[in-house]
Amino acid sequence: MSAAVEDTFESAGRRSLTLPFTGIWRNGLFAAGTWALTAVLTYGLPDVITWGATELFAAAALVGAGIFLALSVTVHRLGSVGRTLVHYGPWFIVLGLWLAVWEVLTAKLGWLPKPFFSPPQGLLHVYVTDWDRLLICIAYTGRLWGLGFFSGILVGFAGGVALGWSKRFAYWGMPLLKLIGPVPASAWIPCTFFIFPSTFHASIFLVALASGIPVAILTAAGVSQVNRSFYDVARTLGADNRFLIFKVAIPASLPNVFVGLFMGLYYSFAVLVVAEMLGAKFGLGWYLQFNTAYSAYANVYAALIIMALICAGLVRLLFVARDRLLGWQKGIL
């Protein structure tokens, strides 16, 4: 609760002044320490199970420690980037510790055995040895996701506006949407095989469906909830239906649309694995299944981390887009 209150104060631009620090960034020093610990443990203790990339991982951790050491005296010269780094200082410390514990429990003591668990060096080994295939998979998944997501949200948005605006459209469309909405993506596979000319089209359809439905539902809700007096005002000022839809209904419902977009983004990632079951030759989802089948869980974890990072990056982009389009909401929320 108090954190939420602090957030509101910060977003209102009211931040109490702190003295500019010029000395040493203590958390940076600690982070350098924990990362160095990881490096020492990785290099110094013998591997119980061979994972490869032991020296490389130790070196990488050491480089990390070196960077934090350098940052601990220079971070205050980096402006806003520096402030962000300082903000996440405690995370860097814990991350170093986490890597050390993870490394010891898996590779060094073997308490968490192969193949179910992988130490960080095992993941690094996957990235180093299988990077070319991973890159191709990222490209394939990117193509499928991009085509599916954008066609999905486009149709979902247009359909949502129609559903929210027209009573007749809502009469026929809403019950259908409510029926289709909860059906899991995999249930569509038999139909899609029949309807679509290729499995790739079918995969696109599944991703589009997953991302389009929440956008459609929330857009429809947003458009139908627009304050009636906005329409009255616009009509007395001479607005026609076109103006009412594009200049009143749509901008007024954008906050809802963005909630739908966030949901659609998460659903679209969740459905990727299913979509790539349909005879895909490459792709992160395919990579996950392929390696699960061979119990190569290190590869599975490595691909999962990539997916999580991409998804987080896209969410971040969506936030930027939202803040630009919905800047007028500041102070209302």
């Binding site: 906005f230 009255d232 005002v233 000022l237 007024a252 954008l254 919905l326 007028w328 909401q329 209302i332």
Partner: peptide
């Protein structure tokens, strides 16, 4: 627009 209604609430478009 020759006859314009001003409401009790300003009903400005917030965006």
């Amino acid at each position: 627009p020759d006859r314009i209604l001003v409401f009790q609430d300003a009903t400005l478009f917030p965006w």
